[in-house]
Write a protein that binds this DNA or RNA. Structure first.
Lengths: 209, 209, 209, 209
DNA sequence: TATGAATGAGCCTTCATTCAT
DNA sequence: CATGAATGAAGGCTCATTCAT
């Protein structure tokens, strides 16, 4: 969709240069997580890496470039490896969906902070909107794919509204993130909610007997 | 629920003064909706109301004061009138919950833009966090209350995990908002998802026959 | 020199109005003593008296007017009542000169803070310069007068350089003020210095015998 | 005596940078001399050097930093080189004390304007107070040292109250400055006063014959 | 490749002053 | 007389960006 790895405007000849870009992006993630976009200054980011502001601008010509690279990095990190291929079990995939969310919420909350910031930003920044749309679109397709597959296999309810359910799963994940972001103690409750969603999607066992 | 109208630091003697404060807050809402907190400048807000920057500062001593008043206003506007009193029908209330969301999403999307910004901001701003926590807490209690009432009346499933369901409903609402904010065409799909949630909560009709 | 009591631009019909002017001037003295001219704001002064800024401007059209009135008040307060008339004893007057300084340094240090501010200000403000010149001039004449009188009476050394001594006494007073302003513990030492000045001016007792 | 050259918060790598700091400090001296602290604005100082305001802030992070450096510079310039070493003649040193004052009063009056401002400021600014106290303390010790030395050598009166005399000399110098600052024509008179002080300190010649 | 130095633009805030009531 | 409301003009400071080295 985008012309590949346009993260840095500078041709990164050396691996050293690549590493510095990564460091800057990671610093930007932390900076935004710490204080939102308002507090994101090139000085701050550069300082976090021990680099000079001018050096930062050498790698990212403009602040906007750095932000784009940062958000792209967030999105990449968020792309859970769905491999709904051959032997993929749709139910497992659904569970993984939620499990990955909860896991990341505990281990790398910054990413979700940025996800919320990305949503906020997408309302007024076309570039962010495109990025988010791309991410949401592919995520949505993945979910729809394994839901369909699950229905075909009889794992999920036959009367499932796939489109609505796909949106619902994404919405639930995002909503859970918002609900738990500032209060980790709500995670267990959210996990019970996730389990309930699964149950409501899974096909009723055939009446035994 | 909130401790009085401390929105403005200036004792508002006249209704005229009150109106100007309102105008400033509304302008701030639009400004944030248009460009996020990054673009929220006192100049911008003042200009939108035709006032002088100094006049803005006459009503709100600091930018932070204006932001607080603005977020408080958003929260107030978001407090859907739950009237779970006497004849309140829990199922209707649940439907109203979603209906109000969809309605506002169409008619006054700015408020939800700000809700997302509020979530983003709450990660690093204690004042926002408190405000959001207060709002979420009271919302959560309201939902839990009508879920319990519904169970008692036999409208909702007897085995419902009230706590998880309450969180789930809030998460769904927020998730739907995020999903539909930049793409109104997704609203109908989201409505189908909302209907599905209702169904999964409502008690199964007794097997006829 | 100045056309009398031009302290307030408003004809003070009522004693009430006069009292408020006084209050404002006193508040200004305190404000300047507390934070120098830099911190002298009309708001601050008005607040100290419980008045509105607009009320202050009713009595003193401009900030400059208030400052002038304030400095004039300081000068007036500083004019020690020299009454070198009839029975005036020049030596007593000299002692009173220093005594009054030390007394005021303890009891009303604000006035000397303002005196130093007045000197600082006189370097760049013509109005202050004129005021200070007038004060210094009359003070100088007074001192010279009683020095001359004292010489005539044989109380002071006959070979005294009156002009230099008059300047010296003023300089000493001002210098003592600067030396003791921030360190009251130096006052006793300064008093010994003052006594020494007296001694060096007084006529040597005729060689007895 | 002062703890290093912390005048600028920026590590001055180049002599060029050092020169610009000097230029800014000198411009600040002129600005304060011209209009007092009230007229001291970063814009004004920057303009006097032809620099940008942002450039000023590159060298001095805050206005306060610039002021401190400026006052420190004044103090440094005021520290007359007393070299009371081996062959130092106490009487010469006393004369130099006054001579240096009169000389500077003619050649570089700005410095004394700032000295008066420093005294005014020291009443309310702790940093200025400390600086002034340090300067006064070391000056006082120097004077006391050569007075004592002079007494020991029989140059000065044996019954001299060293402490009081030291304070008196400082006070006289400061008072002379205040007296002559706006009226250079008074300098000759002040010089006669200074000569008188010398005389009153010097030991009486032994009665000849 | 890296950085010290520099800057134009802009931001939040304060201030003296005015004016209708 | 007195004051609430309003404002034009600054003032201190920050920021993204540039450029010579």
């Amino acid at each position: 969709m985008h012309d590949a790895r346009k993260d840095s405007p500078v041709p990164l000849h050396t691996p050293h240069g690549h590493a510095r870009c990564e460091a800057l992006v990671e610093a930007a993630i932390q900076a935004i997580a710490d204080g939102g976009f308002e507090k994101l200054t090139t000085r701050n980011v550069a300082a976090r890496t021990g680099m000079n502001i001018a050096t930062l601008h050498y790698y990212f010509a403009t602040k906007e470039d750095l932000i784009e690279a940062t958000l792209r990095r967030v999105v990449r990190e968020l792309e859970t490896p769905f491999l709904p291929g051959a032997g993929g079990n749709p139910l497992i995939e659904l569970r993984d969906e939620f499990a990955a969310t909860f896991e990341r919420l505990k281990r790398r909350p910054e990413i979700y902070r940025l996800l919320v910031e990305l949503h906020a930003r997408s309302s007024h920044d076309p570039s962010s909107r495109r990025l988010l749309a791309a991410m949401t679109g592919s995520w949505n397709r993945n979910i729809a794919a394994y839901l369909s597959e699950g229905i075909k296999r009889g794992v999920f309810r036959a009367d499932l509204d796939v489109e609505a359910a796909a949106l619902g799963i994404m919405a639930s994940v995002k909503g859970i993130v918002m609900e738990c972001q500032n209060d980790a103690s709500r995670i267990p409750v959210a996990e019970r909610f996730a389990a309930e969603i699964e149950r409501s999607i899974v096909a009723s066992p055939p009446p035994s007997g």
